[in-house]
Computed example of a mutant assay.
Amino acid sequence: MFAKFLNLNTDKQDRIINAAINEFAQKGYDKASTNEIVKEAEISKGLLFHYFKNKKQMFLFLFDHCIQIITDDFYKKVDLTETDFFKRIRKAVLIKMDLLAKYPDIFKFIEEAYMDDAVDIKVEIEKKVKELNEINIGRIYEGIDFSKFRDDIDIQKILKIITWTFEKLSEETLTKAKLSPNHEIDYPAIQLEAEKYFEVLTKVFYK
Rank of each mutant, 00 (worst) to 15 (best):
V78R: 07
S44P: 03
D116P: 04
R88D: 09
I67C: 08
E82H: 04
I43P: 06
A41T: 09
D84N: 14
K91N: 10
E42L: 14
I121K: 09
D72M: 14
F63G: 00
F52C: 03
D116H: 02
L62I: 02
K55S: 02
F52G: 07
I106F: 02
K102V: 01
C66H: 00
N54T: 08
K77R: 15
L62N: 00
K91C: 05
D64E: 13
P104K: 10
E111L: 15
K91W: 06
I121W: 01
S44M: 08
D117S: 04
E112V: 11
D84F: 08
L62M: 07
V78P: 14
I67F: 13
T71F: 08
A41G: 05
A92K: 07
K53A: 06
F85D: 00
Q57W: 01
T83H: 02
F61E: 07
L62C: 06
I110L: 12
F109P: 12
R88F: 06
V119P: 11
P104C: 10
F61S: 01
F109W: 12
K53V: 10
R90C: 11
Q57H: 08
T71Q: 04
I67W: 08
A118K: 04
D120T: 07
V93G: 13
I43M: 05
K102M: 03
K96N: 12
D72I: 12
V78I: 15
D84H: 12
F107E: 03
R88M: 09
K56C: 05
I106E: 01
F109Q: 11
F52L: 03
K53T: 07
L48F: 04
I89A: 15
D64V: 07
L62K: 00
I95A: 06
I70A: 15
Q57K: 08
I70S: 15
K96M: 15
D98I: 01
D105N: 10
I121Q: 02
F59G: 02
P104L: 12
M115I: 05
G46S: 14
Y51V: 02
I70M: 13
K102A: 02
K91Y: 13
F74S: 00
D117Q: 04
A113P: 13
L60P: 01
K91A: 14
K108M: 14
L60T: 11
M97S: 10
D79I: 01
A118L: 04
D120Q: 11
D79Q: 13
L100I: 14
D117L: 01
D117H: 03
D72P: 09
P104M: 09
I70N: 15
R88L: 10
K87Q: 13
V78Y: 07
Y103K: 04
D73K: 15
Y103G: 03
T71P: 09
I106R: 03
A101V: 01
V119N: 11
E82A: 02
F63I: 00
K91P: 10
M115A: 05
A41M: 08
T71W: 09
M97L: 09
T81G: 10
K96E: 08
K76S: 15
I121R: 05
F107C: 04
I121N: 05
A101L: 13
D98P: 06
Y103E: 00
I121L: 07
I121F: 06
A92H: 15
I110S: 02
Y51F: 09
V78W: 00
K53C: 00
A118P: 02
